[in-house]
Amino acid sequence: MYRKCSVIANKISDIIDGEVDVATRLRFFSHLMICPKCIKYYNQFKLIKQAASEPDPDELPADFDKVMGFVMKEVDANEKHNTGPLKEN
């Protein structure tokens, strides 16, 4: 079991991302069983990760048509004239 809360804090991201081996997980969660402060910290990281990975509620849908149109205009023109990107430079 890890003794220091500072060690636990350092490993939280790796734990919630599943980046550690079984032995490390065991030592980590053994500490959490006896440390309410670290449980709170761990839960806050999990909540942060979950909230950050959900869509932004005010996010406007990306309108890619304009950007796509601009790029494809050049791609289509070069294809039509059989130049392609390699011959462009």
């Binding site: 990306a62 796509m68 494809m72 791609v75 294809e79 130049t83 990107p85 390699l86």
Partner: peptide
């Protein structure tokens, strides 16, 4: 992509553009 195939370019850009 290197040969300038517009269909492949369109496909790649469509899949990644919004993100």
């Amino acid at each position: 992509l290197k040969s300038g195939d517009s269909e492949v370019w369109r496909d790649v850009l469509s899949r990644n553009g919004a993100g």
